[in-house]
């Protein structure tokens, strides 16, 4: 059986039908072709599927599609405005804060969620906020630097 849901997806109202047993991650990737959020573990441990739900970072693999009803969902694809990149995206590129890129969308969304709640976090707060996002390539240093650069620029 399918259920009708309404939600805001990357700043647009959408109406959609979902089966109850599909995760929001599957719905976004398969039904909307928004493949920026990745499945790295399926257990909420790696953060590669991080999106913003009502402005806060959530693992899309730990949420049913049907739970998106009435929510505002932002994925990495909705973060930039056309070819105009978000300041975090730019900073990641300029600081070399990515390697294979698989964790990158989730990492940026977690950082975005943090900055929405706290525009001036300390370095330790940044590290804590992205500790639910595993990166196996970078050693995290340039990621933290990229986020801190945005923080400094906005001070």
């Amino acid at each position: 059986m399918k259920y009708k849901i309404n939600f805001i997806l990357n700043n647009e109202n959408v109406e959609h039908e979902v089966e109850a047993n599909r995760t929001l991650l599957k719905v976004l990737r398969e039904d909307f072709d928004l493949t920026g959020a990745k499945e790295g573990c399926g257990l909420g441990e790696c953060g590669a599927c991080t999106i913003l739900v009502d402005g806060r970072p959530v693992n899309a693999c730990m949420m049913l599609g049907i739970e998106a009803d009435g929510k505002e969902i932002l994925t990495i694809e909705g973060l930039s405005n056309g070819t105009k990149l978000d300041e975090l995206q730019l900073s990641f590129v300029n600081n070399g804060a990515l390697q294979c890129g698989y964790c990158t969308p989730g990492m940026i969304m977690s950082a975005k969620g943090l900055l929405k709640e706290n525009a001036t976090p300390t370095e330790d707060e940044v590290k804590e906020a992205i500790s639910g996002n595993l990166c196996r390539c970078t050693g995290y240093k340039k990621i933290v630097e990229a986020i801190m650069e945005v923080v400094e620029n906005n001070k």
Partner: peptide, 9 residues
């Protein structure tokens, strides 16, 4: 408990 993402749910 868990990560920030988990604690938001």
């Amino acid at each position: 408990v868990g990560s920030g993402q988990i604690r938001n749910k």
